[in-house]
Design a protein around this nucleic acid. Structure first.
Lengths: 182, 182
DNA sequence: TAGGCCATGTAACCGGTTACATGATTAG
DNA sequence: CTAATCATGTAACCGGTTACATGGCCTA
């Protein structure tokens, strides 16, 4: 998913500044399945304005710096809807944890324990986040994707809790075998 | 996860050529959580050899082009193990589907039906793949990660099947509301 | 008074992909 | 005869991140 479509999606739900878009994409509902940095947000916003997909107005705030609030235009909405009709690409999924877990035999119980306990904690935080977001917003499609996330991440957490010890038990086993073979 | 560590991980399980590493990373066990292209494999392999993390021998094959088979060295294994002890970064997850689903109201039932049915099919194929891989390999840690994958992707598939129709029912709703408001 | 939040923006960099070049063999 | 598989490699490109620059306000 390119930055442009993502920003259009966010603006379609409501006006926002670059700063707010960043927050949405790294702390809001979107944070679960995307993330973008300032370095890509601001240039894209400028490009989007030049193409008339968004308009921009400055808002002066008391006690805070001015902000540039962007609104999606009809042209931008049409562009977004047309992007939506392109069959979505596969999810992109990369997991360092799985590589570590797969190599559990080569490393120590301490390393594996830390890795899986961190993962459990992060997963709990993610479930918390999605739950919170879910209760804040009654938009049907948002409810659907948050239910989805909760269901999948809940199953993930179950597995992690039920199989934590068995993974830790595998740590260092290759080493032991190598030594036994000597 | 950088290409280097991933290649070291694959070579740690056995010797392989660049071509075979690509296959492993896009059709084998690793395909579930990583993917790399030739454009990054071959240069990395050369770098790895220069640093003495791997050695290389040429194998002439009858009826096939020669291949360069790489083996991990003790130095390479030490490097890999040390990379393993660094706490793994968050999973990287990007989903165009979730963005489309979240915007179901803006698009047509056809678009949503195609998107979710494609996803269900892809998820089924992934579950098939992991099942196959699982039965081929009795390495404990690999069994662990494949069980994990099967558990999570099974839950994913359940949700998708049980909630397919409710998502489709949301398609086009925003449009209808807009028109009703006119 | 230090650190964190609000707020916008740019330039350098980088990891990785895409597309291309090359070529033999085998299966349909 | 065509397509696919095996096999290695390079160069151009690109999307995006990191780090930097700037600065005021508020809280501890």
């Amino acid at each position: 998913m390119n930055t442009q479509t993502l920003i259009l999606a966010i603006l379609n739900f409501g006006d926002a500044s670059g700063y707010e878009i960043k927050k949405e994409s790294s702390e809001g509902v979107y944070s679960y399945f995307v993330d973008i940095s300032y370095g890509s947000i601001y240039p894209t916003l400028a490009k989007l304005e030049a193409e008339e997909f968004v308009t921009c107005r400055s808002e002066t705030q008391s006690g805070k710096p001015d902000k540039k609030v962007y609104s999606i235009t009809d042209k931008g909405r049409a562009e977004f809807i047309s992007a939506l009709s392109i069959p979505p690409a596969h999810d992109k999924f990369k997991s360092e944890f799985l590589l570590v877990a797969m190599s559990a035999g080569l490393t120590s119980p301490e390393v594996i324990t830390r890795a899986i306990d961190n993962r459990i904690r992060e997963m709990e935080e993610l479930v918390e986040l999605i739950s919170g977001l879910r209760s804040e917003c009654d938009h049907p499609a948002t409810q659907w994707i948050t239910s989805y996330g909760l269901h999948v991440k809940g199953a993930d957490l179950d597995f992690l809790r039920n199989n934590r010890d068995s993974l830790i038990a595998m740590a260092g086993l290759n080493k032991t075998l190598d030594q036994a073979a000597e």
